[in-house]
Design a protein around this nucleic acid. Structure first.
Lengths: 208, 208
DNA sequence: CCGTGTGAAGTCCTTCACAGCT
DNA sequence: AGCTGTGAAGGACTTCACACGG
């Protein structure tokens, strides 16, 4: 068992992909799989699968491959998906609401425990069974909720201010959807999902 | 002028970031900027900014830096944002609708010219001034619209089927939001924006 | 003198190829 | 025999450091 040192984002993101593929195999009642079978079926690299997994232990059986159920369980543990994660959603425009809805549907380990918006028409109303608070109350309310992760889906102009508030009140990780270059707080693990940047990359290839 | 060979995704995505930062400077009436000023203000790497830009030409003035307006214009050209790009949106659930709304608001070079869904209650209705068609008509309608890029925001179970249809009818690029490992068509430039994978990466850091 | 553009060095990531276990 | 786990090779990306032009 080779416990982690510094695992790269690339590796971690691939682990999520592997987990997803393995669950698909579970649904088809496949019980065993080799790295090269996985690679072929899902357009991945067999060597990379083995390297990635080897960073966390020896999950395979030489000559046989991997037991699907076991590997799923192992990956869930490695990624920390075997325990609940409390989320705060900040910004309930159309994107924020879509994300909130998505997170509510899945019996995934992510659970929304707080919701914020600046729109007076939304504050006080409910999303699911959760009351929407005004964004200015972030610092006050977050600590009471046990939220460690925040999903930030506010307009560009509000993103940095909300981010700073979240950092101040002890949030440990932020998933940012606003199309801005955030000035990051050292105490907060930050990831951005940027629709616009990806679309612009595609535009590049269509123009050259 | 060193015209492109194979530009990496990483470089292209950073160009989008630079463009965004420069536009912010324009709004503050900054006319000139050096790579190190940009780096400091937006938490970027000065050497990398210069390397990235150098792949497309000599945009700077030694001893002075870059003229903001000129560099904005150059980056717009490089990324292909100086011409219109026609989009098709496939899947108008809450996420797809949010994306469609976002794309309509901006006077960006991206314009939605077709919309599809499988939901009988949506088909025939309008989103903005666009009629929603049934997804089974993708192959028939896309060629009439001039759409080259598709935004795919359908449930996992429908993603591969829709993707294949899009590839078949001549779509050149797909921006996928479905949480699946797509089997890619060689004729289609494909990018995935994966909310779930990013969230799981954050979960990892909170559990270790 | 200042800042760009750029070879060279350094770091990180992926692929190769094979020893060793089943 | 077959497949994992892994050192070593190869490639990609970033940082360094400086020559050159303004």
């Amino acid at each position: 068992m080779a416990e982690p040192a510094g695992i790269s984002s690339l590796t971690l993101n691939r682990l999520s992909v592997y987990l997803r593929c393995l669950r698909q195999l579970q649904d088809s009642d496949v019980t065993h799989v080799s790295s090269s079978q996985l690679a072929q079926q899902f357009e991945l690299s067999a060597a990379l699968i083995r390297k990635d997994l080897a960073q966390f232990g020896e999950f395979g059986i030489r000559g046989t491959g991997y037991r699907v159920d076991d590997l799923v369980e192992s990956l869930i543990k490695v990624l920390g998906l075997d325990r609940a994660h409390n989320l705060a959603v900040v910004g309930l425009g159309s994107l924020g609401s879509a994300l909130a809805r998505y997170l509510s549907i899945n019996d995934k380990p992510f659970r929304i425990v707080a919701a914020f918006d600046v729109d007076g028409r939304k504050v006080g109303h409910k999303i699911g069974h959760l009351t929407i608070h005004h964004s200015r109350e972030i610092r006050e309310i977050i600590p009471q909720t046990g939220a460690q992760i925040a999903v930030l889906s506010v307009p560009e102009s509000a993103a940095q201010r909300c981010y700073d508030d979240l950092a101040d009140c002890g949030i440990k990780a932020v998933l940012n959807f606003a199309p801005v270059q955030l000035k990051q707080a050292p105490s907060v693990r930050t990831k951005s999902v940027d629709f616009q940047i990806n679309l612009e990359e595609l535009a590049y290839f269509l123009s050259s």
